[in-house]
Every structure is written in C-alpha cells, then in structure tokens.
Design a binder for these strands. Structure first.
Lengths: 205, 205
DNA sequence: CGTACTTTTGAATCGCATCAAATCTGGTGG
DNA sequence: CCACCAGATTTGATGCGATTCAAAAGTACG
C-alpha cells in the first residue's frame, strides 16, 4: 500500500472541504516544468516533497532563480494574473498538489474566514521575500549565509538536504565562494556542519 | 482652502466605506519614524506623497533598506503580526493615510469582495518583491539598473525624483558605482538621463 | 567499475567598495 | 545679488572579495 498523503495537514487546516476535494495529486519529476512563463495560469501548486524552483529567463537569456520551494505554495501570486510570471521547474522528484484557480477564487469569495487565512499566508510570504531581499543586499557570502541560517533556520540550524551547490544559487553566489565561506566559518568556530545541516555554535541548540 | 486629498482614489476603489471613515491623515516629516521594529502593529499606512523607507537594522548594526515607497501601502504584511518586522522611516516630507488594523481585519472578514481585492493587492506585492530579489541576484550595477528600469519603469522610463544616491541604496550598490554605471550606459547610448528620469533608448517612448 | 555529480582547492582576473577630493547644485541669509 | 552651506554629483586611486577557469578528489548509484 502506497502511503500517498495527497493532501498534507498544512493544507487541510487552510483549505475548505470543496477545495480539498478539487485538489489533485501531481507527481514531480526532475527536469519537468509545471508551468511556463507567460502561460495562462490554471492551477496553483503546493509542494509536499521534492523541490520546485521558480525561475525567470531574463532578456539576456540567463535564468535567475526567484525561489526554491521544498514545502509550501508555488505560484500563489498568479491568482488573478493573466499569465505566470516565471517558470516552475522541478529540480527534485517528489509530490505536489494542484488546485484549480477557478475553484480557489470561488471559495475565497464564499468563505471570508478562508480568505483571512489566505491573507495570512500571503503576509507570511511577503515577509519572507522581504527577508530574502535583505539577505541579497548583504555583501559577503558569509554574511548572507549567516543571515539565512538566522532567518530561515530552525533554532540556528539550517537544513541543506540538496547540497551546498543549490544553496549557492539561492544566495546568488558561485558555489566555490560558498564552499570557501563555509570552510572559513567552520575554522572560525562560528558554525558546524552536520551532514545535511549547518548550525550556529552560539545560541540555538 | 487646503486641497487635502486625505484619501486618494486608489484607496477609494479598494476600501469599503467603513474603513474610509476610519482612515486618518498623517503628515510625513523627514526623519520621523512611523513605526519601529518589534513594536506591536496598530496601523497600516498608505503613502500619498513623500517617501517612506522600510529598513531593518541587522545584527551587525548596519541598516538595510527593504523597500522605498513613494505611493502605496506600507506595513501591509503586519496585519496579523505580533510586531512590525522593520522600521518605517520617513525620508521625504509628504502625506499618508493611517488605517487601524482592527477595523481592517473586521472589514476583511465582513466583505468577501473586499478580501478578494486585498488578496489581489498582496499578490501584486509578492510579484514585485520577487522582481526585486531577481534584480538583486544580478551581478553588475548596470544590469541591476536596466532590470529596474524594465521592471518598475513606465515604458522604459524610470522616475528618479530623489537623485541617484537613494536609488543606489535600493540597488544595494555604492552610489559611486551607480554614477559610473549610469555614465557608462549613457556613453554606450543605452540610456538617456532627462533630469529626474532615466530612459532606455530602444523601445519605450 | 564507470558515470555523473558534488565537493574541494588553486590561481588569475575583474568589478565593486572604499577612501579621498573636487565640482556642482539648490537653498538660505546677509 | 552675492556669500555661504549642505547635500548631491563626479572623478580618481587602491585593495579586497568574488567570479571565473581549471583540476583533483570524494560520493552516490546503476
């Protein structure tokens, strides 16, 4: 028996029954693109496992990573948009849930308390994005990494399940620079690497 | 008679009557701080004129500019927060409107169509922030500037009412670097400076 | 065992930050 | 009107840190 938790608890608590019924499980295959820039939005996704990267190809042709999502909503901002504003690229196998945007709009209009929860979710996203902007405003790879650990980490410990290389693109630095920064911070006894996690020495655990 | 447009049209179209009645005009004085990090949120603001900068003082003590607002909402993400996540510093005299958060929450719960409009506003903000992250991920001052003009500008023309210096902090580069980048782009016939605006030569106007 | 990937280290180069200083600007008061 | 000041603008020189190119070593997986 495949234990397929098509809809995780986070969604059960947020969405009304009608939407839960309309939710469809979507398998994520590395390399696949869930949606493309400029496409008309039809679904919103919730990543249960695996990884999706929102990326946008600039005029110069180089792809820029807007966001990595390992657990949470993707394309939630396309609710009333005429088109997706970025690509949804799967970078690690896993599972997601697709929600039809039409149904979502209808339920938001029908259930005020759901709309309020949705607004709360968006507020959280806005704050997270502000944090990312703040992080990217920092000079120095080390500072960015420490900021990430303090901001997104759990009690001074940041999970890095997919290696430092993918983390480097999120911090908008070369992977070499990140490796060197981590090594330096370890020498300085500021952080400790524990396999799939980086932790601050002070505070936290 | 002072023509005091306490509530601009953008707000009239968005907010229900009850909130418009609860809105209070707030004069903005340069140097003043509308709210402080970690304070309990009581109001949300809408900038009519002047400028407010959202800034956060990092652990290292250096202030980081999260956002400059010359027209639009400020602190909209603090709706259900226990505290503001940044300071609201006035950087240019002007006027704003203050909305009590309590009343806002109540109206959102009471009027689904208002909640939907609010969600639309938040979606726009999320996209704008993603754009800013994308911009900050770019290497090179010139690239960031061009991205800003293309993204936030009006038909390839970006208003710079407060000089390039404040723009530099928004792009997270030194003002010297920005001045040099602008000069270079002008030499290369890529942009034109027109007093308070920078415009692309190709496209746009 | 081989392939593909990440991790790691090295060396050269380039862009930006930084410090410094000169010029220009608008505004204020004499 | 002019002197003067505060701020923005501009140019120059220097150093550091990150990028880049390169290559080796480690690791996971079929």
């Amino acid at each position: 028996m495949r234990s397929a938790p098509a809809v995780p608890n986070a969604l059960r608590n947020l969405l009304p029954p009608v939407l839960l019924a309309a939710a469809a499980a979507v398998p994520l295959r590395k390399g696949e693109r869930l949606f493309l820039q400029r496409q008309r939005p039809r679904h919103m996704y919730f990543v249960v496992s695996g990884e999706i990267v929102l990326e946008r190809s600039g005029a110069s042709g180089n792809a820029v990573v807007l966001q990595r999502v390992r657990h949470g909503f993707v394309a939630e901002a396309s609710l009333h948009s005429a088109s997706y504003h970025c690509d949804g690229l799967v970078t690690a196998d896993g599972d997601a849930v697709a929600l039809p945007l039409e149904a979502l709009t209808g339920e938001l209009a029908r259930h005020p308390e759901f709309a309020l929860r949705w607004i709360g979710m968006l507020n959280q996203e806005v704050r997270r994005l502000r944090g990312q902007c703040e992080r990217l405003s920092l000079r120095g790879v080390g500072e960015r990494l420490l900021h990430l650990i303090e901001t997104e980490g759990d009690h001074g410990s940041l999970a890095v399940p997919h290696g430092l290389k993918s983390l480097a693109t999120e911090l908008a630095v070369s992977h070499e620079a990140l490796y060197r920064a981590v090594a330096t911070l370890e020498d300085e006894k500021v952080v400790v690497r524990d396999g799939g996690a980086i932790s601050l020495r002070r505070a936290g655990s």
